[in-house]
Design a protein around this nucleic acid. Structure first.
Lengths: 229, 229
DNA sequence: GACCAAATATGGTCTGACCATACACCGCCG
DNA sequence: CGGCGGTGTATGGTCAGACCATATTTGGTC
């Protein structure tokens, strides 16, 4: 009587399980193709609609990309774009008021502090430097923010954790408009750039403690209304 | 008539945008219902298949739940289960070898350290204590691991960041089997419980530094083959 | 050999039908 | 009057078949 909602076994879920099973047993990975929708429906003895719903789920999760037409690039190809579903997830939950900007900002600070303490690759330093220079010449707030995102994403990329990188990209995507408005309203790009330079220098010098401190102070300035620490 | 669209956008994506627009403008939130599939298709002048694919996307992202039948609880209801898509995302990317267990473990350590440093609510302490006791009497490794998950999830919940909580749950879900095998193989539940007690005491005492240290040492023991720190 | 037209394979969409489920409604009976 | 049971109905789930849009492949023509 408590209206116990039992998960019905829907056809598309069975298709989903079959596809996942193929990925596991056949060792499929990014770049490999799945059979066509009609062929898959035939093989699994289900309708094409059910196959399509399963493929839509995989596409939503960023592991599949469908291309129309004909040839080697057509059809359903396995990919990996974990940032896309994460961004959608954050945007929707913000819209539903089941997540707040402050929570996202707190997670951002956590990841950046961790990244500043774990930077290892030198390759990302060049990307950070390029974004730094581009911010100096940025005309519009949108342009500045996009380069700011590139700078901070590169910082996280430098730590070499793809999960954190995907989350970081999603966070910045979801709050991009927030950042544009903040820059437009406050316009303290000079201060922000000074922070960026301190972060860059600390990273380049390999000074972990200084890097974490610089990141923390920068975010405190970027989100003055948010109690972070 | 939907066949004259020259835009790259597919019909179900247009439906998706319309639904999201309704959520934003009508202030819909968790618990609110969407019109039926047929009615939605009529309103938007698209086929029911396209509506269904859009709803499937929302369901995949954990913000919609469909129930058959009739009555107030039937139909498409807005929800918020961010852990579900995150778990799927991790599992699929592990299967595709685009993410490693090590990366997930590193993110877990990051979140737990952060949580240990930011614990604020006392309500979760009771949950942690109950899980602690349950682990003492756990017979099978699966039972121990489930209570271990409850303990660590409660630790993160105590920090009050729903995004981090959702990520933490997904991490543990994705690596649950890994944990069961580790406990079965190593069987050092006594050491782990000693760690748990140290964490619990430090949290209860409000000693942030000790909490972080205890969490760090615990994870180092739990994942001996992983270079963490 | 270069170029253009037809064939074809692929995903995208639509229509209409039928099934399974679970509540709503209503009439019967106590 | 009130509970109880059968029937109606709205809902999602699935299927079959058709047609469209797109992009490559194929093959014929100059």
């Amino acid at each position: 009587m408590p209206t116990q909602r039992r998960a019905r076994s829907r056809t598309f879920e069975e298709v989903l399980a079959q596809i996942e099973h193929r990925i596991a047993t056949m060792g499929l990975t990014v770049g490999d193709r799945l059979p066509g929708e009609r062929q898959l429906a035939e093989q699994l003895q289900v309708s094409r609609s059910s196959v399509r719903e399963a493929l839509r789920v995989l596409e939503t999760l960023g592991v599949l990309s469908s291309q129309v037409g004909r040839g080697p690039d057509a059809g359903a190809v396995l990919t990996s774009h974990p940032t896309t579903p994460l961004t959608d997830l954050l945007r929707l939950n913000l819209g539903l008021a089941t997540l707040t900007e402050q929570e996202i900002i707190a997670t951002r600070l956590m990841i950046e502090q961790w990244s500043a303490a774990h930077h290892s690759t030198a390759a990302s330093l060049r990307t950070m430097g390029e974004a730094l220079a581009a911010m100096d010449t940025a005309a519009a707030p949108e342009e500045f923010v996009d380069q700011d995102i590139a700078f901070h994403v590169a910082l996280v990329d430098a730590a070499g954790n793809r999960l954190n990188s995907a989350i970081m990209r999603a966070l910045r995507n979801a709050l991009r408009q927030y950042a544009v408005e903040a820059v437009t309203r406050l316009g303290h790009t000079r201060d922000l750039q000074a922070d960026h330079r301190r972060i860059y220098e600390a990273i380049a010098a390999g000074d972990t403690t200084a890097s974490v401190t610089a990141v923390t102070q920068h975010l405190a300035r970027a989100y003055p209304s948010t109690a972070i620490g």
